[in-house]
Amino acid sequence: MKKSIILFIALLGLASVAYAADSQIWGEMRIQNILGYGQEESWKLGPLFTMLQHKYFAWIFLGVLIGVPAAFFIHYKIIGPKVFPHSEKKYYAFSLYNRIIHQVAAVSFLVIIPTGFIIVFGDFFGGGTFVRMAKNLHGIFTIPFTIVVIPMALMWLKEALFNMDDVKWFMILGGYLSKEKKPILAGKFNAGQKMWYWVAILGGITMILSGAMMYFLDFKMEMLHNLAGMSQIDLLRAAAILHNVMGFIVLALFITHVYMSMFAIKGAVHSIITGYIEEEELKILHSTWYKKLKDQGKF
């Protein structure tokens, strides 16, 4: 709760200084920003950003967008989905609060990710009103995600801490490379889900902050400048690079998350809609948790 308050204040601060009278970019700072360009002891972020954005970013995004689903398509064809009966006993795993928080984040992502693509491939879409609208939606739908990201981080934190089960899970890649239904060591969340938790939370917060910096552009935060030791323009360049690189990672794991819940484990998505997880699914894919629940007499 304390963390969320601090974040809220930080964002509010960012917004209120956004329209500071003395520009950090075009005023007297302008010459500093220019002198920082390409000179010794400068971060050389201008040429770096230019090179990355000119040659690599769009191609990497395209590679992730095609490569990850292609790999899963092959997985689906060769190994196929895991199917559980879904008629047996079910366990109530996600409360209404969990589900609402998750769904707000889900809807945000479903808008933020496609609009992000429209911006990255803006030339393909011809720019103008359509891409501008995508850019605005990209920003607007960050607001609901910002609201739920801290509650989401807190409600699943305990289950998302890595433990010894995860090492074993990673060694067999969660059993997704075999057709066998053998119990796999995992608590409420397996190592893959935990990885997604940390990328979605820490990566998500990184995306919010770097995105907010690019949105507000000409803000003044003495503390941030001192901390980073960067001029405003270099800070923005760093944010742009970070936003893209983090974007690759979030995107790759988001596609994975959707594939797992919608295709790889048939019907798994219902657990976050109704809150109920099917018993055999639990027994096989989250055996440690299943054992614990059984000991507690839940089954």
Partner: peptide
Amino acid sequence: IGCGYCLYACPFGAPQFPRDGAFGA
């Protein structure tokens, strides 16, 4: 679309961005 990338790339801080709309985009 007013994304600001040209400003980050510019060695001279030349690109300028007017604020318009209710959200100051």
